[in-house]
Amino acid sequence: MSFHREWADSGEDMIPWFIKKDPSNFPAMVQDLATASVGEGLPEGWVPDSAFWLVNHENRVLGAVSIRHQLTELLMNSGGHIGYGIRPSERRKGYATKLLQLALQEAKKLHIDRALVVCDAWNTGSEKTICNNGGIPDLDCIEEDGNVIKRFWITVE
């Protein structure tokens, strides 16, 4: 609850998508995510994705990640395989780099050989995280409503 509340109070966009869900009935939320991971009950145009949380030794949720099992045209352009976020009070501590590293291990289990990871052009922290995990810049940037999105490919080993 504190993870969700802190992020909501920050006014920032909540990424990955599932952290926008109300966690007050956490078992139901987890069940919805489990169902989505096998492709059941998805909205039109959505693909199965797996959700994970990064939790420290005190059971404090530090971040979350969504791994999309495949790419649609929209995801190929601006969503990518992996979307992650670190709670505002825990940023700049290396957690994003670790979370993406762990997500890439999970992506390998999903038979993703090359993962597309994207970030807003202004988000230098996320760009460094992606590059720290082997991200190679794609020459194509995407512009959506005036926002430039950088794309990176990571070979999953």
Results as ranks from 00 to 15, higher is better:
residue 48 P to A: 11
residue 67 I to E: 14
residue 55 V to F: 02
residue 43 P to G: 09
residue 51 A to W: 05
residue 57 H to K: 15
residue 72 T to C: 01
residue 84 Y to H: 08
residue 63 G to E: 08
residue 55 V to S: 03
residue 79 G to P: 06
residue 52 F to S: 09
residue 73 E to C: 02
residue 31 Q to S: 09
residue 59 N to F: 13
residue 44 E to S: 05
residue 26 F to E: 01
residue 44 E to L: 05
residue 86 I to Y: 05
residue 30 V to G: 02
residue 80 G to N: 09
residue 77 N to D: 09
residue 66 S to N: 15
residue 53 W to D: 02
residue 64 A to Q: 11
residue 30 V to K: 13
residue 48 P to Y: 12
residue 77 N to P: 01
residue 81 H to G: 09
residue 32 D to I: 01
residue 84 Y to F: 13
residue 90 E to Y: 12
residue 36 A to H: 08
residue 43 P to R: 06
residue 61 V to Q: 11
residue 76 M to E: 08
residue 63 G to V: 04
residue 23 P to T: 06
residue 50 S to L: 11
residue 41 G to E: 00
residue 31 Q to Y: 05
residue 87 R to Y: 03
residue 42 L to R: 02
residue 28 A to D: 08
residue 27 P to H: 08
residue 47 V to Q: 12
residue 88 P to L: 03
residue 69 H to W: 05
residue 72 T to N: 02
residue 89 S to E: 05
residue 28 A to C: 01
residue 59 N to L: 14
residue 39 G to N: 03
residue 70 Q to A: 14
residue 59 N to S: 14
residue 71 L to W: 04
residue 37 S to D: 06
residue 50 S to M: 10
residue 49 D to V: 03
residue 23 P to L: 03
residue 23 P to W: 03
residue 27 P to Q: 07
residue 43 P to Q: 11
residue 57 H to Y: 07
residue 44 E to C: 01
residue 37 S to H: 10
residue 64 A to G: 15
residue 87 R to A: 12
residue 33 L to Y: 07
residue 36 A to Q: 10
residue 66 S to L: 13
residue 36 A to T: 12
residue 78 S to E: 15
residue 75 L to M: 13
residue 37 S to W: 12
residue 31 Q to I: 01
residue 67 I to V: 14
residue 60 R to F: 00
residue 74 L to H: 08
residue 51 A to S: 14
residue 80 G to M: 10
residue 85 G to Y: 11
residue 61 V to N: 01
residue 30 V to F: 04
residue 33 L to K: 04
residue 41 G to Q: 01
residue 89 S to N: 05
residue 31 Q to E: 13
